[in-house]
Design a protein around this nucleic acid. Structure first.
Lengths: 276, 276
DNA sequence: ATCCTCGATCACCGAATGTTCACAGCTATT
DNA sequence: AATAGCTGTGAACATTCGGTGATCGAGGAT
């Protein structure tokens, strides 16, 4: 059998790529935690250690990127806890880091929704690399939208200001409202389902019957209409969700400051058909 | 230190949830491959084993969900290969499955873009579980977008809009209608039985005598005919079910608006507007 | 301590959508 | 050609969905 080529000396953990993450560690191995804490501090990751299974709601509230769990300290409800956690937060990176285990146990954990399973004792550096690997994809997707300001119709959405503007005036969106419109606007004209939206803005799974998304869409529409009366931006797709697209309102064909021509031709579209 | 709770006996690998994946394995450990092959077959995953590093382009062409690599057989260029691969296919799940390795090696591999690193010898079941875990996320984000628009006759079925279009105009399908036609259209000309259709669109088993599928087919035909009168799309197979295929209607061999080709096909529609 | 903003829920209502049924029209057999 | 079994149709009926305004409670700011 061939040899595995040698690795270069470990590159600096602060490598340009790795942005700061928020993670929590559920463990009680003080020695391990101490070492880990130091490394995490050095990386600039926000982190918190928990002695036991925090209620899922609380974990949700922490807005984590990932969580590291030693299943052994959770006792018999470990599996159930793991399952509930993964179900409630499909976007959360879950790395199990625990003592000796059987194949069946590892398989079970992974099937329940864990993203990785690391056996103790392990090197903190590897744990960190695995957490990074787990979080990487999600980040790649989320990040591409946090690029420069988005413009649509009269609206300018600036994530550096956490605010949207019309003709330089702030639309006075709250945080949630902003996150919602940012998500929609960056969806590139696609229709987003409520579950998706909720998942990505609120950070955890939507329970059936939750109307939060609708309510916020209404608030957004209200503020947007006040600020930019001739345009409509958020379109409902019945039974599915919402779609963002700047469209001239009916009867507002005179666009004072608008880029000439092109745009006026557009409204013969799906939305129009649906609303008909 | 507490004990890790026992896992239940391993649940059936064919678990309902796990859809078929396409994966490739770069390895040459014939014993391992044999066992793995059998398992993968049983799971219904399309898989292929490669004796060595296929050119990255070729791997791209395989349209894989994930790839399993034994770095050891790649020799000295292993790292470089891994890096190029991960870079070229950010959406590909990469699981390194290789012999003994140092922490530094594992960390390096993960940093280069690998999603998981498993040490041989390992149980195939665990490998499979890890591949599933790796693919899980990707699937969540990527799945919707992956299936590009389907075109047939004058019809364009877009799953990013949950809608079908004819010459850029929406056919105004409801969600169920859309899901039904999407299913049929993706069935690639095969005849689907009502039970199948119901099962896959409604999500549960059809009770004998339920006519929902028929009713929806009717609604679909109605809307499609209104939007694209010269074509018929859904065909009945008596005693069996339905088949999707765009076919010119009898006596409509002259397609009135077709000749100037491109022009008509590129309407000033929503799609165009969005891409602007 | 008190005021105020923001987010989470609720209940209500009109509208869009899905389900079911009876009957008419077809198809393949006898 | 007659018949039993499928499928197409239209409409009534039941459900679900989304918009809206109001209320309530948690925190933050004053």
């Amino acid at each position: 059998m061939n040899e595995l080529p040698n690795a270069r000396p470990e590159t600096d953990s602060q490598g340009a790529a790795s942005l700061a993450l928020r993670i929590a560690v559920i463990d009680n191995d003080s020695g391990f935690l101490q070492v880990l804490d130091k490394r995490l501090d050095r990386l600039g990751w926000e982190h918190r250690t928990l002695a036991g299974p925090a209620p899922v709601d609380e974990v949700v509230a922490m807005r984590l990127s990932a969580i590291v769990i030693d299943l052994a300290i959770l006792g018999p409800q470990a599996w159930e806890y793991l399952e509930r956690l993964c179900e409630a937060m499909p976007g959360l990176g879950v790395v199990v880091c625990t003592g000796r285990s059987s194949v069946a146990q590892r398989v079970r954990g992974l099937r329940l929704g864990a993203d990785d399973w690391l056996t103790k004792p392990c090197h903190p550096e590897e744990l960190i690399a695995r957490v990074e690997a787990v979080v990487r994809r999600r980040r790649e997707v989320d990040e591409r939208r946090s690029a420069g300001p988005v413009e649509a119709g009269e609206l300018v959405i600036r994530n550096d200001h956490f605010q949207a503007f019309v003709e330089g005036r702030s639309v006075a969106l709250t945080r949630r409202e902003f996150e919602l419109i940012e998500l929609l606007a960056n969806a590139d004209g696609r229709v987003l389902e409520r579950e998706d939206i909720y998942q990505r803005v609120w950070g955890y799974a939507m329970v059936r019957g939750d109307r939060s998304v609708d309510v916020f869409v209404r608030k957004l529409r209200h503020k947007l209409e006040a600020a930019s009366p001739n345009w409509s931006y958020i379109h409902t797709h019945f039974g599915v969700g919402y779609r963002f697209a700047a469209e001239l309102r009916e009867g507002a064909d005179i666009v004072p400051d608008a880029p000439p021509a092109d745009f006026v031709a557009e409204p013969a579209n799906e939305a129009a058909a649906l609303e008909a």
